[in-house]
Amino acid sequence: MTSTSHRTSRLGRKRSESLVAYGFISIPMALFLFLSVGIFIYAVYISTFDWGIMGPTKNIGLDNYRKAFSDPIFLKAIRNSVKYALLVVPIQSAIGLYLALLVNSKIKGSKFFRSAFYFPSIASSAAITTLFIFLMAPDGVFNGVLRFFGVDTANLFNQGAWLSDSRTALYSIIGLNAWTTSGTMMLFYLANLQTVDSQFAEAAVMDGATRRQVFWYITMPLLKPAHLFVVATGMIGALQLYDQAILAGGADGSPDYSLMTVVLYIYNACFRKFEFGYASAIGVILFVIIFSLTVLQKSLFGSAAWKGDN
């Protein structure tokens, strides 16, 4: 391919290929530049203003950011969102992987189990959360099951009020979302598992590797693209927790702001206090958090999958 005799035609081909490529990406890139990058810059601009319902009043520089970091409720929201993401992502990824391995093995009814496991992922969060609130109520089904196993729920430290006790509310939502999202994560792992060549594993077994060794040294590394995708999308999704928080804890993320998330805080700044500039500033901070975590996680997993195969 590097022979010099073809250089001119290769150059010509390169140029026409570039033109074609620009043709392909022109509209998508224009949309990205307009709907995401442009909007992002506009958000940064708005975030430097005292901006109410009727529009901007005055430029206040970085005051919105200063205000954010001196508001204890906002700091609590950040802590909640990060804590939630750091807990829910590994749990839902691990369950997703485990489920994928389960249904990927040649078993009877794997199709049924696959559908069943994905089931919670398909309904809307509004519907699921409503259901969940019912199940987790002090006299709901969950406590009924606990009582069946001999747990005296009325004398538990939270009296069985899982969602209305600040010590268990966030963990309950983590449980809910690990349950609903793991189905999606299972799908991504399944997709990757289909591409994994079973020869490697078989060869390893022939060499005397144990199942555990095969899993950790062969299967796990081969699933790297799925790990990357599952953790990246999971993290971004988790930091945007909103529907479940407002449905279970109301706009204040009650009790004791234990369900106050960054996004819920943005929502409140916008629609309860009409501080559009302030809301934009929080949005920018959220972006910075997501960006840093993604970069961190990228360096943890290595960057191979982010690059092309040239």
């Binding site: 009020a161 209305s164 600040s166 009650s254 702001y257 206090k273």
Partner: peptide
């Protein structure tokens, strides 16, 4: 006033959850 209501209610619920 909304902030006062929010602060009061959140703290009240937090206090009550400890029997």
């Amino acid at each position: 006033w909304g902030d006062v209501v929010g602060a009061f209610n959140n703290e009240a619920k937090k206090q009550i959850q400890d029997k």
